[in-house]
Design a protein around this nucleic acid. Structure first.
Lengths: 195, 195
DNA sequence: ATTAATATCTGAACGATGATCAGATTGAGA
DNA sequence: TCTCAATCTGATCATCGTTCAGATATTAAT
């Protein structure tokens, strides 16, 4: 019985990058960004303090990789949530709920995914995953809007609603009991506004 | 000619707390939250590293004080912006613009004012200033809405728009040339939605 | 005016962190 | 099998936040 999470009997770990991402997101979930450190992650992975740098360059690199994974999860959750409804407005609401759920239940990811100063936004994989999540969102909104709405309006609406959800979650403005109602309010007023 | 910003000839500084807040916000503006440190602020104030702790407890305490001052500035800017217009919708837009202007031109404040993990939200002065800014916002929105809209709707709308502005600024989703248009879009659709 | 109490600041220390670098170890391809 | 690149270690460095005893100044009380 070893107290460390991962064995250290081999000099070469095998799949250190993945393990570091996993352990890193666990640390974030448990202690938040304040309790996060490269050394802590290295400890949990049972590896020397300098090892992570070889794969991710620096702390920002690891956080960026975790954030990219987070956006991948968000996209998946949003897709899943959307399939539950047939009504196009309901689908947008469901996606917003997925966004909220991730921000609330997975505080580790939420704490860094949108933190410009913590993440390297120029990272390709990060951009891909973030764009994928936002793309799903935009698409769903486009379907919920009437056909007569032009592209510029749709773009405005998508960005506005995305920003709204981000704000509501980031500022913790959604109380659990009224989440459904408040989100639906935001979606409905926006759709009503562009129709 | 002294290189230090403040003299150190007196053992007792006189108004250290204010100076620390000033220097702290300057550091934030220049180097962002990454470059911010108690030691750096102490250096600029020409004071021992331990001095700030006596007034603000810890780093979070100083950041909280700076953030509170930031909300005070924001409230002032919003009030000022609102007086420029007579139309109630225009006033809401002007307030949003003030919000945005602060987020963009004063990145030092924006970097911490809404960062839960950096700030002590239970701090009284912080709460007061933040509530004041939001209160102005809520009030302006209430005036812009028609009289038939009930209080719950107004509350939803205020929170939604505040969140939207926060999201747009935080995620840097507003490009300069379309700022006016996008903000007006957000305000107008929201008002249209609740009318 | 003198003294006591309080507020303010110093200087040195401690533990922890991110980053760097030479060198050890391993695995993959010639 | 041998070579070379990839991977990881261990030690080091500068910096950071915080703490604490003690020095200095201000205020209040006598």
């Amino acid at each position: 019985m070893r107290s460390e999470t991962y064995s250290r009997d081999r000099y070469h770990h095998g799949n250190l990058p993945e393990v570091l991402i996993d352990e890193g997101s666990k640390v974030l979930a448990e202690k938040g960004i304040d309790g996060f450190s490269m050394r802590e992650v290295a400890r949990r992975a049972g590896v020397a303090v300098a090892a992570p740098s070889h794969h991710f360059g620096n702390a920002k690199g690891l956080l960026t990789a975790i954030a990219a994974q987070g956006f991948g999860k968000l996209a998946k959750n949003m897709e899943l949530a959307a399939t539950a409804s047939r009504d196009s407005e309901d689908r947008v609401v469901a996606m917003c709920q997925a966004y909220r759920a991730m921000g609330m239940s997975d505080p580790g990811y939420a704490a860094i995914m949108f933190r410009v100063e913590l993440v390297d936004e120029s990272d390709q994989r990060f951009q891909e995953q973030a764009a994928r999540a936002f793309g799903l969102f935009e698409e769903a909104l486009e379907r919920a809007a009437s056909r007569s709405v032009d592209a510029a309006q749709i773009s405005y609406a998508a960005r506005t609603l995305w920003a709204t959800m981000h704000g509501l979650v980031d500022l913790k403005m959604i109380k659990d009991q009224e989440a459904e109602e408040l989100i639906r309010f935001a979606v409905r007023t926006l759709l009503a506004g562009i129709r």
